[in-house]
Design a protein around this nucleic acid. Structure first.
Length: 353
DNA sequence: AAAACGTGGGC
DNA sequence: TGCCCAAGTTT
């Protein structure tokens, strides 16, 4: 009979191996009484949804420098926030981020709710994020279940049922381990364990604080867990994108509608994206279609965009989009697929070919 | 409740 | 190159 995993053993490991992250209070400082800033915890948790720490760092630094408090963020212009989020993906997060900030200011006096249920009611905060904020910011013993926790629990108990079917079992396993003491540090400790030792591919079982309790290590199945049901193949969609430039350098840009793919983001006017799209130039001009196409893969399809460029007159009236002075445009405001289009178009517009 | 929703890095 | 993966939420 082996011993079960001990939360305290993980907390001991965390005390010496915690990652140093800009939104985190170190276990040492936490023990000395320092509290995490709920605004920073919330912002980091939303940014980290389905997104790596490496990708988030820079965005977190820029956001907190521009908007140090939830009140600052709530007062920001939508376009500015969407532009700062560009490149991070899942843009509904940014739209909900603003909604949430404004609700917190308007209905909660600028302070985040301190309970899981109160947090869960806010835009963009689901079961995971509500529990994570309650645990990390307010040290409440909530059961935090994210992808890391699922992987660690699946291995600890050698659970071979594929996700998402295994979810209830994994949640129960996580609940059984969540401690009453230091639940905030514990939640972060499991995530650090998942990110640095109990990794998806080649877990470093030899240095794991829970190796003695791990059923998958015993069975030799760790690197194969958790099992996941196979995903559907991605279809290919095609489309046209149009980059119009005036002699003064102004570019024709379009704000996308507030819902759906890339909702609320800046982009180039274009056709729909489908199997057989119709060309849809936003203004009459001598369009030149580039040899190269912009290729991009979204969550559920591959996209190939034909890129068309044109130099247009000073007074043309586009049927879609608005001209933006070149000085007021930064490619970093664009979602990645649109930045790829711009990179291709820029070369063509410079050569005038 | 299944599907929509981004992106960059690793192998 | 292509597929898998990362601190999920919404409809």
């Amino acid at each position: 009979m082996r011993y079960g995993a001990d939360p305290q053993a993980l907390l001991d490991w965390y005390d010496t191996h915690a990652r140093d992250l800009p939104w985190r209070v170190s276990p040492r400082d936490r023990a000395a009484g320092e509290r995490p800033n709920p605004y920073r915890v919330w912002l980091s948790e939303v940014m980290l949804q389905q997104t790596t720490v490496a990708a988030v760092r820079g965005y977190f630094e820029r956001f907190t420098k521009l908007w140090p408090t939830v009140g600052d963020l709530a007062a920001a212009e939508d376009a500015k926030v969407m532009g700062e989020w560009a490149g991070l993906g899942y843009y509904a997060r940014a739209r909900n981020l603003l909604k949430c900030a404004r609700v917190v200011v308007a209905e909660h006096g600028g302070r985040f709710p301190e309970t899981r249920a109160g947090l869960r009611a806010l835009p963009g905060i689901g079961p995971y994020t509500a529990a994570a904020i309650a645990a990390i910011a307010y040290d409440q013993p909530e059961v935090v279940v994210d992808g890391n926790v699922e992987r660690v629990m699946a291995r600890l108990h050698d659970i071979r049922t594929p996700l998402p079917m295994a979810k209830p079992e994994l949640t129960a396993a996580a609940a059984a381990l969540t401690p009453r003491r230091r639940p905030g540090d514990y939640a972060q400790a499991v995530m650090d364990l998942g990110a640095t030792i109990c990794t998806p591919k080649s877990p470093a079982c030899g240095v794991c604080p829970w190796m003695g309790a791990c059923a998958a290590r015993m069975a030799g199945t760790a690197s194969e867990l958790p099992k996941k049901t196979a995903k559907a193949a991605k279809p290919v969609r095609l489309g046209y994108a149009y980059v119009a430039q005036r002699a003064d350098g102004a570019l024709l840009l379009e704000r996308r509608p507030d819902r759906g793919l890339l909702g609320g983001m800046l982009g180039w006017p274009g056709s729909d994206w489908s199997v057989a799209p119709e060309p849809a130039p936003p203004v009459a001009a001598e369009w030149r279609m580039l040899e190269a196409e912009a290729r991009h893969t979204f969550t559920h399809f591959h996209l190939r965009l034909r890129v068309c460029v044109a130099d247009v007159g000073a007074r043309v009236q586009p049927c879609r989009g608005e001209f933006r002075p070149r000085q007021e445009f930064r490619p970093s405001e664009l979602p990645t697929v649109m930045r790829k289009v711009f990179d291709l178009a820029q070369g063509a517009l410079e050569n005038g070919c």
